[in-house]
Design a protein around this nucleic acid. Structure first.
Length: 424
RNA sequence: GGAGAGGUGGCCGAGUUGGUCGAAGGCGCUCGCCUGCUAAGCGAGUAUAGGGUUAAAACCCCUAUCGAGGGUUCAAAUCCCUCCCUCUCCGCCA
């Protein structure tokens, strides 16, 4: 959510951001409505002032035992008028709020302009693509041949876009979760959190999933409950409606959760394998930062996510999302894309974003600066550290051997009870 | 699921025959004074949002906010309705 005053004072900046994001919204419509709102407020408040003052007169007259019926009649008319105007005002405010809730965040100045993911800009690469003296297989072939992944039975249980893990695969998924959490808590200073996997609509609003993206979520029928699409949602909202201490910043949380996404509108995309599932596991990193430091913290966050891939010896690149590909709430986002030889492509495995005060304003998360009376909104950041299922995919595809076996990266061997290779 | 109690400012806590309550009192905090010592005392201040004023801000003025929303009334923290949350007891359950 953008600050109302910011929109009023910088309509051209907001319009420019909308244009760069390829979003068709006209800020002039918003401003006209806001103008109307202010004129009604002025009228209402003048009337109310009169009403308040004269109501006291009534009280005085009555306490003296005098008749006040004339005055009461007159005030009754004013009161009616106020009620009518209040109704109108409420309607306009609702429209303004709905409008504002659908305006995406403004962009960081260094976000490249572009239409979609084709215009994202690669900023670095780490490691090398592995060489194979055979044709590398996609992970769904590797995983099913090794009897670790079973998509057919998963479909029987729940439908498409679900997976069933057995034996070494289930263990590997769990190993990855523990490995990631250990690195982030022991080495990167994050506090581990285990949040609810179901949240209410207020919480979904706080991080920007609602009202605009309801169709991406799973909602529980008959309840104001949604399955979380990412740990970002419950973890960022931990401090909603709170005032944090400046000296406590930055606050850093890491959380493992399953993530649930409807994947509406992705029909036909990534239909095979683990890449795009209705349910997947993710270890998330969330930071609450001082506004002056949030972009430094974004670099830090990115490096924390990268560490995991480096320890696993997986080749990746980092891209900056262009304006047209940037998420609704984010001001700037880095995607980490891991190399998948089985698909001969880089695929997103982490997305690290600075939301500046956009989520903080929605969720009302402030801090009290030491040298100012005025409370300010914190900046929120988050990033995957990492998507666990896709990480398992990357291991299978990058560490596959000619004989169909898969090596386990050294860093994970202790988490696999010493198993260093998965054999047919 | 059944029965009961309750939600007031940073915290504690008054206030329910509607009016002088944005709200007593206490604590905490901030600033100043005083004090030969990290105390006590004295004084002042101490919410958020919106509107107006301003080049902008501070100040100032106004309006709203006593869990949320709606209603009654000239007027509601106080009355009525709906919802949410917390606590206690019983039941059930991992």
């Amino acid at each position: 959510m953008l600050d109302l005053k910011f929109i009023q004072k910088n309509p051209e900046k907001v319009q420019e951001a909308l244009r760069k994001r390829r979003v068709d919204l006209n800020i002039q419509d918003f401003l006209a409505l806001d103008e109307k709102r202010r004129s009604i407020i002025q009228e209402v408040e003048a009337l109310r002032r009169q009403l308040n003052a004269q109501s006291k007169e009534v009280a005085k007259l009555k306490s003296k035992g005098e008749d006040a019926s004339n005055l009461v009649d007159e005030l009754s008319k004013i009161s009616d008028k106020i009620k009518k105007l209040e109704k109108e005002k409420k309607q306009i405010e609702k429209e303004l709020f709905d409008f504002r809730a659908r305006i995406p965040n403004i962009l960081a100045p260094d976000v490249p302009e572009g239409d979609d993911e084709k215009d994202n800009v690669e900023i670095k690469k780490w490691g090398e693509k592995p060489n194979f003296d055979f044709e590398p297989l996609p992970h769904w072939d590797i995983g099913t041949k090794l009897k670790g992944l079973d998509f057919e039975r998963a479909a029987k249980l729940a439908g498409s876009r679900f997976a069933l893990y057995f034996s070494w695969a289930a263990r590997l998924e769990r190993a990855l979760i523990n490995f990631m959490l250990d690195v982030h808590t022991r080495e990167h200073g994050y506090v581990e959190v285990l949040p609810p996997f179901i949240v209410n609509s207020q919480t979904m609003f706080g991080t920007g999933q609602l009202p605009k993206f309801e169709e991406d979520l799973f909602k529980l029928e008959g309840w104001d409950y949604y399955l979380i699409p990412t740990a970002e949602v419950p973890v960022t909202n931990i401090h909603s409606n709170e005032v944090l201490k400046e000296e406590d910043l930055p606050i850093a949380y890491t959380a493992y959760t399953p993530c649930f996404r409807s994947e509406a509108g992705s029909y036909g995309k990534d239909t095979r394998g683990l890449i795009r599932q209705h349910q997947f596991n993710k270890v998330e990193l969330v930071r609450f930062a001082h506004p002056d430091k949030s972009y430094d913290e974004l670099e830090l966050l990115l490096s924390h996510a990268e560490t995991i891939l480096q320890r696993l010896g997986l080749h990746y690149r980092v891209v900056v999302l262009c304006s047209g590909d940037l998420g609704f709430s984010a001001a700037k986002t880095y995607d980490i894309e891991v190399w998948l030889p089985g698909q001969n492509a880089y695929r997103e495995i982490s997305s690290c974003s600075n939301f500046e005060d956009f989520q903080a304003r929605r969720a009302n998360i402030k801090f009290q600066p030491k040298n100012s009376k005025k409370k300010e909104f914190v900046h929120t950041l988050n990033g995957s550290g990492l998507a666990v299922g896709r990480c398992l995919v990357a291991i299978l595809e990058n560490y596959q051997q000619k004989d169909g076996s898969v090596r386990i990266p050294d860093a994970l061997v202790p988490y696999m009870d010493g198993v260093s290779i998965i054999k047919p």
